[in-house]
Write a protein that binds this DNA or RNA. Structure first.
Length: 107
DNA sequence: TGGTTGACGGTGG
DNA sequence: TCCACCGCCAACC
């Protein structure tokens, strides 16, 4: 049972990341919340690392505060991908997180 | 089955 | 604004 729950959580996480539109981003916490585990941001990072599937735009998932996070240490690549999608940066952080951040809570 | 790891979040100094 | 500590959760050995 627990395994099914985790598998479902993982599936929801992948699905949530896949739904992030181009030019937008989401924090690990947001993805975790959408998947049903608001406090599983760390687990989301692990899922991203273990799965790392091409159909999952993991580069659109950033850390809280507009920071990039890990991404294997090559944060430059991740930043370049986001910049290519129109996301503006201010140094190592997003220039406007609240603007590009997706909102799963519809108006 | 149990312990460790790690692409995090929030708070305090 | 930056660094360190603690808490949380899934994957891996």
């Amino acid at each position: 049972m627990s395994r099914s729950v985790r598998a479902d959580f993982t599936a929801r996480v992948l699905s949530a990341v896949r739904r992030i539109p181009r030019g937008r981003v989401a924090t690990y916490g947001d993805v975790a919340a959408i998947a049903g585990r608001p406090r599983a941001a760390r687990a989301v990072g692990n899922i991203m690392r273990t799965c790392a599937r091409p159909d999952v735009p993991c580069h659109r998932v950033v850390a809280a505060g507009g920071r990039l996070g890990g991404y294997g240490g090559s944060e430059t690549v991740k930043r370049a991908l986001l910049v290519a999608e129109g996301v503006q940066f201010r140094g190592k952080r997003l220039a406007d997180l609240k603007t590009v951040r997706i909102r799963h809570r519809a108006c």
